Simulated assay, not measured.
Amino acid sequence: MVTPLVRCNVPSDWTADFSQCLYEWQSLETGAFAVLAALIGYLAIRLQIRHADKLENKRLMRLHRAKRFVLPLTLSTATHYANEVIRSLSEASAILRSTPNGRLSGHWSPPVFPSEIPVSLGEFVETSDVETVNALVSELLRQIQILNARLVSLIADEDVFRLGINMNIAEYQLQAAKIRQLCGALFPYARGQSEDVPTELERGPVVSSLRFNGTAAPDDDFESVIERFQSVGKPWWTANDDR
């Protein structure tokens, strides 16, 4: 039954008849308790989410450290592959020069592509949030996959593009030298010696390493490719290229 103490003014009526005021204000109390329960539930969920995020961040950090520890081995493998490509392409060029109608098919095959490199580099990028490093690793991944595809097609397209095959060989050697430069730029970070990586790569070191440590008996096609590459007055790669 509702009594005259309907308004239950604070504090006078509550002091006079506390239990009746509780009865009159039961709807308000129910609402207040519901709001309080919702607030407690919200705070509990927020704490759970923060805890889960913290655990996930720790897991990703451990995973990234593991991928970074493996990165030097991947870079060494990629560098070795690039060196083998340059050497092997020099042999291919010598085969073509040895006889007027020299052919690669049956006499030459490209180095075996280390398929673990793309997997390792891709997993590294998935766990890294350093955009400058990711841009450099992504460029290395792109270059090495394109080079492998081009080497495979070198023999397959020999009959169709025979007139330009020497030019292709020179261009592929240049691309392999780029891969060596990319690996060299990433080694200090991979080994934990630095947290910074270059944001651009110049053309000069690519040509220098190719001339002194790569090709044997460069020909006119090789010199033409090198001259065209050097004639561009800007770095051959910048981090902005991946944005």
Rank of each mutant, 00 (worst) to 15 (best):
A217T: 08
P100A: 13
T77K: 15
N240P: 00
V160F: 08
L151D: 10
W14M: 10
Y23C: 02
E24A: 08
L60T: 01
T238L: 05
S224D: 08
A177P: 03
F229G: 05
E29L: 13
T215I: 11
V119L: 12
G164R: 15
T77M: 06
A44Y: 15
E123M: 08
L151G: 10
W25H: 12
L210Q: 10
V133T: 07
L182K: 04
Y42R: 15
C8V: 09
W108A: 04
I117F: 01
K234D: 03
R150C: 05
A156V: 05
G204P: 00
C183P: 02
P198D: 14
G214K: 11
E158K: 15
D129T: 09
F69E: 13
L174Q: 11
T30P: 01
A135V: 00
L63Y: 01
F33L: 14
A156R: 12
H64A: 07
R142E: 08
G214Q: 04
E158C: 12
N166W: 01
D220G: 05
D221V: 00
V10I: 14
I155L: 14
E227A: 12
P218K: 06
N168V: 00
F113T: 04
I86Q: 09
A16N: 08
A44E: 07
F18V: 01
Y42V: 04
S27H: 05
T77E: 15
A78T: 09
I40G: 11
R87F: 05
K234S: 11
S115C: 01
D13V: 01
E227W: 00
P114E: 04
H107M: 06
E24K: 06
G184F: 02
L75G: 06
G106I: 05
I226N: 05
I165Q: 15
A239P: 02
I226H: 04
A135I: 00
G204L: 11
L141P: 01
E29A: 12
D53Q: 13
